[in-house]
Computed example of a mutant assay.
Amino acid sequence: MKQSLFTFIKSLREFLANKLNQYNTTLPYVITVIVALVIVVGGINLFVELTETLKTEMLASYDTAITDYIIYYRTPGLTSYFKFMTLVGNAYGYLIVLAVFLLVSLLVFKRWKYVLQATLVLALATGSNMMLKRFIDRARPSIEHLVSVETLSYPSGHAMSAMAFYGFLIFLVTKFNINKVMKYVLIIALIIIILSIGISRIYLGVHFPSDVAGGFIAGFIWVVFCILIFDLIELFRKDPKT
C-alpha cells in the first residue's frame, strides 16, 4: 500500500505542478488524507446500511437461521474452544498478545513503533465500539448465554476489535522480512483467530450474526484507514520536498 500511496502522491504532485504555477508542497498529502476519509465514509455508509436493516424480518430470519445452525453443533469440546477464543478477544487477552508482540518487536525487529500502531488501532476500535453500542442500543439475543455479558449487542465488540487488531497484525506480517512459509502460517493463524472470535460470540449465544458482521465491517474500516494514515505519515517524513 505504501508504494501505491507513493505513486498516487507523485502523480498528484505532477498534476498540480502542471495545473498550478505555485502550490503548497503538503497539498498532495492533504488531498490524500481527504481521499482516505472518503474511503472511510464509504465504509461507514455500508455499516449504516446494515444497521438500518436490524429491525427487518428478513435480517431476523437470517440471524435466527445462522444462530440455530451454529448452536446445533454445541459440544463440550467446541464450547471449551470458543470460550477460550472469546477470552483471547477480551482485554486481558489483548494485553498478553501485546506483551508478546512487544518482546518480538524489540528483540527481533528492533522496532517498537509497530506495537504503538497496533495499540492505537485497537484503542480506536474499542472506543468507537462503545459509542456505537450506546447509539444503536440493541439488546442481546434472548437465547441461553454460555458466558456472562453486560454491554449492549450491536456491533460486536469482540468481532470489531479482533478485525481491527489482528487484521492490522496481518498487514504488518506482510511487511516483515521473514520466511515465506512462516509468513503464510502466521497470516492463516491470524485469520483463524479473527473468525473464531467472531463465531464464538454466536456460538456462546451472546450475539446475533449481524452483530458480528457489523463488528467485522467497522473493524475493517479502522484497519484500512489507519494503514493509509500510517503510510502517509511515513512518506511525508521521508519526502525531501516537504
Rank of each mutant, 00 (worst) to 15 (best):
Leu116Asp: 15
Val115Pro: 10
Met130Arg: 11
Ile136Glu: 07
His158Ser: 09
Leu152Asp: 09
Leu116Met: 05
Val115Phe: 08
Val173His: 13
Ala125Gly: 09
Ser128Phe: 02
Ala139Ile: 09
His145Trp: 05
Thr119Ser: 15
Pro141Gln: 06
Arg140Leu: 08
His145Tyr: 03
Thr151Ser: 07
Leu116His: 07
His145Gln: 04
Tyr154Ile: 12
Thr119Val: 13
Ser142Cys: 10
Ala164Met: 10
Ser142Trp: 10
Phe171Cys: 13
Arg138Phe: 05
Tyr166Thr: 05
Ile143Cys: 06
Ser142Tyr: 11
Val121Leu: 11
Ser142Pro: 14
His158Val: 08
Ser156Glu: 03
Gln117Met: 15
Ser148Pro: 07
Leu124Pro: 07
Pro155Tyr: 08
Ala139Thr: 08
Ser148Cys: 07
Leu152Pro: 02
Val149His: 06
Arg138Tyr: 09
His158Glu: 04
Gln117Thr: 15
Leu169Ala: 13
Phe171His: 11
Ile178Arg: 13
Ala118His: 01
Ile178Gly: 06
Ser153Ala: 03
Arg134Glu: 00
Val173Ala: 12
Gly127Lys: 02
Ser128His: 06
Gln117Leu: 15
Ala125Val: 01
Pro155Val: 07
Glu144Ser: 05
Leu122Val: 00
Glu150Leu: 14
Val121Cys: 06
Phe171Asn: 11
Gly127Trp: 03
Ala123Trp: 14
Asp137Ala: 13
Tyr154Ser: 00
Gly167His: 14
Phe135Cys: 01
Phe176Arg: 10
Leu146Ser: 00
Leu172Phe: 08
Ala118Phe: 07
Arg140Phe: 01
Ile136Val: 09
Met160Gln: 09
Val121Gln: 09
Met130Gln: 07
Ser142Asp: 14
Leu152Lys: 12
Asn177Asp: 10
Val147Ile: 03
Arg140Lys: 15
Leu120Gly: 12
Ser156Leu: 00
Asp137Val: 01
Ile136Arg: 04
Val121Asp: 08
Arg134Lys: 13
Leu122Arg: 14
Thr151Val: 03
Met160Asn: 06
Glu150His: 11
Ser148Thr: 15
Ile178Glu: 10
Pro155Gly: 07
Met163Gly: 02
Phe135Glu: 14
Val121Pro: 11
Thr151Tyr: 08
Gly127Arg: 04
Leu132Thr: 02
Ala164Ile: 11
Val149Asp: 12
Arg138Gly: 10
Leu132Ser: 02
Met130Ile: 12
Asp137Thr: 04
